Simulated scan of single mutants.
Amino acid sequence: MDDIQKHILAERALAAARRCFANRYTGAAFAYATGSLLRGEGTAFSDIDLVVVFSSVERAWRESFTHEGFPVEAFVHDEETLAHYIHADAESGCPVMASMVATGRVVGPDIKRAHLVQAKAAAMLAAGPQPLAGARYDMLRYQVTDLADLRGTRPPEEIAAIAAQLYQKLADLILLGRGEWTGRGKWAPRLIGRLDAQLAAEFDAAFRLAAGGEGARLLAFADGELALHGGRYFEGFRQDAPLEARRLE
């Protein structure tokens, strides 16, 4: 698909999002239409992400459906529930909702209010994640250490399974450990690539080899990242259970 075709598809998706908003979410104040289709990066199989905002809802919800041939993932909120999820994402270091709001195309009648909310989300993204520190930092270091269980001889299928578990945690350590937002799924390699193309190439090569049963390069890569944070973290790790974690039979 060339750039012209992608642009045409993006405009079709935006028009469909506007009609979807008007027909399905009567009374909503505004929405943000976003996703790869709207950015001109989508394919024939991409969906529309639609963040819908009412003046008030009893509880937020999400739903999936098809509209005019486009798969749609809708996230329905009022401003309070939207703020909750934006800030929860920020605390996790993975700003999914904030990114959708900040990059979305505004749909609906209350354009002024939509832009105010959008500006807050964009400012939060620009400020970057909270510094990786304390118990959260210790847990991530421990998880990467624990999951990088690639020393010694293992069958190829176990190495591939270990790599699958390790991928996200190691990506989190790479990005959050450098003061960058992290991402889930396809966003993890994209964000690492934007940060450092060479690092992304090494990350990808190590996991490709591990998926084929060769774990030495992934182990070396993980140990290299851990070395930036004081090395492997096992000795001295402790996690206390919640006080309420008990059950009387």
Score class of each variant (00 low, 15 high):
204 D>W: 07
164 A>G: 14
70 F>A: 02
121 A>F: 06
247 R>A: 09
128 G>F: 03
169 K>L: 05
213 G>S: 07
184 R>C: 03
172 D>E: 08
239 Q>T: 10
195 L>A: 05
125 L>F: 01
170 L>Q: 01
96 V>H: 11
84 H>N: 13
141 R>C: 10
65 F>L: 11
110 D>S: 12
238 R>C: 11
69 G>T: 08
128 G>D: 04
143 Q>I: 14
40 G>L: 04
130 Q>M: 13
96 V>N: 13
19 R>C: 02
151 R>I: 05
101 V>C: 12
38 L>N: 08
131 P>C: 08
123 A>L: 08
65 F>P: 03
165 Q>H: 10
18 R>F: 03
231 G>K: 10
109 P>S: 12
234 F>L: 15
198 Q>V: 07
216 A>F: 11
82 L>S: 00
94 C>R: 15
8 I>E: 12
132 L>D: 03
78 D>K: 06
14 L>S: 06
43 T>L: 00
240 D>C: 06
196 D>W: 09
112 K>Y: 06
118 Q>K: 14
17 A>D: 02
95 P>F: 11
235 E>R: 15
76 V>L: 09
52 V>H: 09
135 A>S: 15
128 G>I: 05
75 F>N: 07
207 F>N: 00
154 R>A: 10
227 A>K: 13
224 G>N: 01
198 Q>F: 01
221 F>Y: 03
127 A>G: 06
170 L>K: 00
213 G>I: 08
138 D>R: 15
152 G>W: 09
227 A>L: 09
211 A>Q: 09
33 A>Q: 04
47 D>I: 03
5 Q>S: 15
204 D>I: 07
230 G>D: 05
240 D>K: 14
238 R>H: 14
41 E>N: 02
216 A>V: 13
185 G>C: 08
14 L>R: 13
206 A>S: 12
35 G>H: 00
221 F>V: 01
51 V>Q: 04
228 L>Q: 12
120 K>E: 14
96 V>A: 11
204 D>E: 13
187 W>R: 15
168 Q>N: 11
57 V>C: 10
23 N>E: 14
155 P>G: 07
66 T>I: 15
175 L>Q: 00
169 K>D: 10
172 D>A: 03
1 M>G: 14
176 L>W: 03
3 D>Q: 11
233 Y>W: 07
183 G>M: 03
69 G>Q: 07
8 I>N: 10
32 Y>N: 02
189 P>C: 07
177 G>A: 04
160 A>R: 14
51 V>N: 04
125 L>T: 00
5 Q>R: 15
75 F>Q: 10
21 F>Y: 03
59 R>S: 15
239 Q>M: 15
187 W>K: 15
189 P>H: 09
24 R>G: 02
58 E>C: 03
184 R>G: 01
224 G>D: 00
85 Y>C: 04
12 R>T: 04
129 P>Y: 06
